[in-house]
Amino acid sequence: MSDNTKVWEVFIQSKNGLAHKHVGNLHAPDKEMALQNARDLYTRRNEGSCIWVVKAEHIISSESEDGEAFFDPSNDKIYRHPTFYTLPKGSKYI
């Protein structure tokens, strides 16, 4: 008989105020067990203050193969970076 459990991706917030960061995945049949397994598997040394678990099937990823084309729209917009602009000599705090 197949175990056929779901795969969950795990995200951990290491400290209050910081963003959740992907740490890996695990198998679990439901969300409560996914959270408990994530605690046992990824926070044995106080690595986290909050855990998110997300079913892996719900994550949509861009392809890293055609990454260049996908991210192309931002390539030619160097005016989005502050270093693009020339400032008058002597100007400060900007």
Binding site: M1, N4, T5, P29, D30
Partner: peptide, 15 residues
């Protein structure tokens, strides 16, 4: 451990 996996699966299906 098969019965544990089976029980967990069946609970999850019901939910």
């Amino acid at each position: 451990g098969e019965w544990v996996r089976k029980a967990a699966r069946s609970y999850s299906n019901k939910q």
